[in-house]
Design a protein around this nucleic acid. Structure first.
Lengths: 130, 130
DNA sequence: GTGCAACCTTACAGTCATGTCAAGGTTGAC
DNA sequence: GTCAACCTTGACATGACTGTAAGGTTGCAC
């Protein structure tokens, strides 16, 4: 498929698909006219890349991880590099921290919004029946 | 206190404290020699800023929120702007999404690390008693 | 009071994941 | 043939950092 279709199917802008290519995360073939030609399996891979980026993992590290995450279901560990393992553990722990923090702030925001609503209610209907 | 002490107490590098100032999130007074002078209450505020930034809220929006989050405990809504409310709701929903995604990837990573460990165990002790 | 480390200052450049735009080539439908 | 809807590369902008250079201030030892 061409870049536009991949963009639609993954909801990742074409700009980003080209960027991921630039970073060596995907390497589509080229048609005779120079257009990029993406294989089906790249849909999954792009989604994986997005997910990892969204989790705060930089492209450089994603590049290290991707070859290990080849099979969609089964986890294949080709070269069990202890350094990579450590890095992944660190990333996982950082994720846990971020989840906790996000939850904390989500609750704070929820409380804040509720307070706003009370304030708005008080403003629009200031006279409360005694 | 001076910038170095604030940095130590908040674990936010001086470089970033100056950056937050540049972005209008904190405005320390100046000593005669030009050094920045931070009040005690800024320790809390900087921590709040870090938390919000970590949650993916941009400085621009944090700048809008901070004046509302003055009191550490009580939530004070000075000007219940419905636009701000909508924005906050959007931010909160985005946070929820990000939490879900992070959790998903955290679990994936955990599974992956476990698989690695099995692989390492198999490599270092390849002969399993039948 | 000289020297020196440890602090502080500004200012400018670089990074990373994005967004946006320009200038131009290709394709397919009418 | 022309027009919209694609595609290409390239360049510049932005947000949140991050690094570093070049220099001023402070405090302490000698």
């Amino acid at each position: 498929m061409k870049i536009g279709e991949l963009a639609k199917r993954t909801e990742v802008p074409t700009r980003m698909l080209r960027y991921y290519e630039e970073q060596g995360l995907i390497t589509p073939r080229r048609q005779q006219n120079g257009y990029r030609e993406y294989d089906e399996y790249l849909v999954d891979r792009v989604k994986k890349i997005r997910g990892l980026l969204n989790s705060g993992i930089p492209t450089r590290i994603i590049g290290d991880m991707l070859p290990c995450l080849n099979q969609p279901q089964e986890i294949v560990v080709a070269d069990p590099d202890p350094e990579l393992r450590e890095m992944l553990v660190r990333e996982r722990d950082r994720m846990a921290e971020r989840v906790a923090l996000l939850e904390h702030h989500r609750h704070a925001l929820t409380r804040y919004i509720a307070a706003m609503d009370r304030s708005i209610a008080a403003t629009t209907a200031p006279r409360v029946p005694t």
